[in-house]
Nucleic acid binder design. Structure first.
Lengths: 333, 333
DNA sequence: TTGTACGCGTTATCAG
DNA sequence: CTGATAACGCGTACAA
């Protein structure tokens, strides 16, 4: 309710002095500063953000763009971003829009254009996406999580290496009939991380001289779909693989549940390995590659606010990951 | 980059006419309006939000407060709110803070005080919470999801009735050894919805003359914890219940998984019923009460924006729910 | 160290 | 129907 003018009046100084005393800029005697701060405190003064933004050009707001909220990976990123942003005095405005969706279009034409934020964090942008050009055209500091992109500060994991790593883990255990579960179904927007993981899987299979035994099956990145896809895949006893490389932990968990329902013992009759380090991984004894998305969200904020303050050059970093071996993988038979 | 002054100049009118033509307020000749709109279009004009806010007092932003992101119920609400807000031209600023946490305190003292939003949607506020008073003191339209609160527009389900309903479902099937799984562990912030569901459970048990056979066990509202708690609960064959009323679907799913691992058949040896209508419910054939949180989020936006526009009196509505019977419940033995 | 005066980009008021 | 002009609430050169 009360503005800085009220604070100034109560403290017996001018508006500008009050402003300096509160924002810290410029010279103010300690005595005066304290008087102003007391006045502000007793009046419950809080600066009006729109006025501050108009005067300074800064909004103290960061935009976060995600395809979905209700998936562990994205939810974790959101939480990581949030808890790092808030203590630094920033607000988070959240935009949820799948790539290529109508929402995406209006997002860029209407919302992001409002220059309401000091920076953007975008998750799971596709490298060939037109979004990227539009994003850059805003001229605001931008950090992407999930894919390596040219000309943008990027934070992510090496998905090809991970695909290779988990496949090699199974090969080393002696598996040969290894399939990949989780290719993007036709009609869905392409997910580049999945494509890279498949590439890694293929590389490992070829490296073991098994390129002809490669099998890639479709599934959405959810437990439900992983369950259904795995159930179909495992139904035929003859063609059944001895190991599944899942595109993510949700699919892996779905596969484990499906196997149990079919009476297939994990890991003795079927090994399953995932990617993510999902909250449920331990409960299902899932061997997986942990990528700590919440920490990535935190780090993205660090990088972004660094850019906001220093106008630094875009950084690019590959997050280290860790293979955690649990009881969902073992030697075949 | 270009402001309304540029648009006005290009269209050959004054700033005020340009503003009227674009915002729709006041009289402008059709001819002039078109000229201005063309000019705005060709310049890619987008109004600066902080200036608009300063002039109009409206921010076109809604604040959403949730305790967590990464839980199905909250994530669904966030998605529902988002997809309703955006088409209406509003931005969403997200605040994540557990009740009684340090984050909560700074949330109220620093962020919400910035009057940066036209309204607030708060999820899972506790009725005895000091937050409520502070929330109301902002004088902004406010809608709460999850609990019935005095003097606030409220949207939620009747948790007591639900607790009764699902317990009676089990009683009707012939169960008598029915326990409740999911009481809030000591040290955790109290969750009123859980308390109410327990009350409903107790009412139903008493109504069947079974008040002495009542058993309430603790668990956090997650699959992982539900799994662990159920595993402990089901370990002793002698004292094992024939049915579990779970505080939410996550716990119910955890219990089903635990039962399977222990070789206990669901539903023939153990019935399990949950609350929520989780995405995974169908996959686990879970009998549950659907409450459609995403739809609640949408409805909350409707109510809130109604209040923003009309300054209506707060509404209060109880969402109808539906018991969906699947294969996790059956007659005992 | 402090106060004055102006600008940030829009909308609203009020004559014309 | 249109155009000056004054807010909106704050930060900040500049002068004192």
């Amino acid at each position: 309710m009360s503005g800085i003018a009220d604070v100034a009046r109560l403290a017996g100084v001018s508006k500008s002095t009050a402003s300096r005393a509160l924002t810290g800029g410029g010279y103010v005697s300690d005595e005066t500063r304290r008087r102003v701060q007391d006045a502000a405190g007793s009046l419950g003064y809080v600066p009006t953000t729109s006025a501050v933004s108009l005067a300074t050009g800064r909004t103290n707001t960061v935009a976060l763009i995600v395809p979905r909220v209700n998936r562990w990976y994205f939810g974790s990123i959101i939480e990581g971003v949030e808890r790092t942003l808030i203590p630094r005095g920033y607000d988070l405005t959240l935009y949820v829009a799948e790539p290529d969706s109508r929402d995406r279009a209006s997002l860029y034409s209407h919302f992001l254009a409002r220059k309401r934020f000091d920076g953007v964090i975008a998750v799971a942008l596709e490298p060939d996406d037109a979004d990227i050009a539009r994003l850059l055209s805003f001229g605001k500091p931008t950090v992407c999580i999930g894919n390596e992109l040219a000309e943008i500060a990027t934070l992510g994991i090496d998905n090809t290496a991970i695909g290779r790593m988990i496949t090699q883990h199974l090969l080393a255990l002696g598996h040969r009939a290894i399939v990949f579960l989780g290719a993007t179904p036709k009609g869905e927007p392409t997910a580049h991380d999945v494509i890279d993981r498949i590439a890694g899987y293929r590389q490992a299979m070829s490296g073991a001289g098994l390129s002809d035994r490669t099998g890639v099956y479709e599934s959405t990145l959810t437990i439900t779909d992983g369950y259904a896809a795995a159930a179909a895949l495992l139904a035929d006893v003859e063609s059944r693989p001895t190991a599944i490389v899942a595109a993510c932990d949700e699919i892996a968990i779905g596969a484990i549940v499906a196997a149990r329902r079919l009476g297939i013992a994990v890991p003795s009759q079927l090994s399953v390995v995932g990617v993510d380090g999902h909250d449920y991984a331990e409960m299902f004894a899932l061997t997986t590659v942990e990528q700590r998305p919440a920490a990535q969200g935190e780090q993205a904020v660090d990088i972004l606010l660094g850019m906001v303050d220093n106008a630094d050059a875009p950084a690019r970093s590959t997050i280290p990951v860790q293979l955690v071996v649990r009881a969902s993988t073992a030697a075949p038979r």
